[in-house]
Nucleic acid binder design. Structure first.
Lengths: 216, 216
DNA sequence: CAGTGTGAAGTTGTTCACAGCA
DNA sequence: TGCTGTGAACAACTTCACACTG
């Protein structure tokens, strides 16, 4: 018990690959094959799959179909979760357009914004409401996931509201550290963190090349 | 030497907080204060700041202005990097609109797409070109960063092109594992990975609550 | 053999403990 | 006493080594 978070993070990439293999009507796949395709360590793959309760046959590998259902099952993809999104700016709209969420077991059922021009419209089948409607819908629908794509300045306020109306998990894209009561799940997706890693690696290689130049 | 990647990932949040403190004209800040604001461990903060070459005074903390310049310096924020973006769909547009990148030392100078309606237009000051223009501009501008926000099906092809025309680092948002020659920096931002963590945690709490119910 | 499966070793990052300081 | 700064203990994750299987 106690699956490592990195294992969980790799699951969607396994699922994507397996769907592809299923379409190509491959019947079996081995961990080393998966590893090569995804740039992972082969035993890492074996461990991940066994966490998910999959089992394969030596010399042959895993049956693609069985493996796919094992992983879907493990990830709870048989039951779809619903989400509210607050902040229908450019990032919010991008997420609303993302059809892949449905395949990955989440559906955005409503969006909220303060922009009067957007309120009352629909995007990709998702209605956009004014913030006042939030309470109303929250009371009725018991949506478990709240997605925050507002400016940083109002993110905490929105998070407090979400908590107040019973959200179980918050997926936060605003670049702030939200303060939440214990028990509420928080997942931050801070785009700048990824950018920072790139910039840092770029600096590293530049430093190395200048060192080589200096040595000569 | 050898700064942990998680430290690098936390840097932008420190920078954001410090900018805020500077605006509020706070002169000093201590690691425990920062830790409380950002939900981090205090000694973690001390270690991170010392990696960045900052130094503070016992009982008082760090001078906000000095700390900010130390971190900016450490992250190479004195020199801005330029980027190409390929795939001006909804996510691509969202990134083009993100003004925060400039503050975090990256500027998108051009976007590319195959949609004829978008080609020739501008978004947020960023011109959108047809793919044929890529080589032309790449040859002239020596842009170090390539951002991929295309559908998964064409991401590898675009990545190959980018490598061919001399990109140093690729920031990939498409849900595929790109295959790149050694030496090219790759940073994946896979949104589904974050979603997977949320769904998994949601399942956990649900399992726990049903267990409690069953015990009664 | 070329795979699965698993315990042990190694690596990386976090948290603790405490010395030094004002 | 409340902070910085750092070495040591700890925890988490990955990689290695190897027994096992068809």
């Amino acid at each position: 018990m106690g699956v490592p978070e990195p294992t969980i993070r790799r699951m969607p990439t396994y699922l994507n690959l397996l769907k592809e293999l299923l379409e190509m009507e491959e019947s079996n796949v081995s961990a080393p094959q998966i590893a090569r395709r995804l740039n992972l360590d082969p035993t890492q793959v074996v461990k991940d799959l066994s966490y998910a309760g999959a089992s394969g046959r030596p010399r042959i590998g895993y049956a693609v179909g069985d493996l796919l259902t094992s992983l879907k099952n493990f990830m709870g993809y048989n039951r779809q979760r619903e989400a509210f999104l607050v902040g229908a700016g450019s990032l919010g709209q991008a997420l609303i357009q993302y059809d892949g969420f449905v395949e990955h077991s989440m559906r955005i059922v409503a969006a909220f914004d303060i922009n009067k021009e957007k309120i009352g419209t629909e995007m990709n089948g998702v209605p956009i409401f004014s913030m006042d409607k939030y309470r109303d819908l929250a009371d009725r629908l018991h949506i478990p996931i709240g997605i925050i794509t507002t400016p940083a300045s109002v993110a905490q306020e929105i998070a407090d509201m979400m908590v107040c109306w019973g959200i179980k998990a918050i997926w936060n894209f605003a670049p702030v550290a939200l303060r939440l009561p214990e028990g509420v799940i928080l997942q931050d997706t801070h785009i700048y963190a990824n950018l920072a890693v790139i910039l840092n690696k770029l600096m590293d290689v530049e430093k190395q090349t200048t060192e080589i130049v200096n040595q000569q």
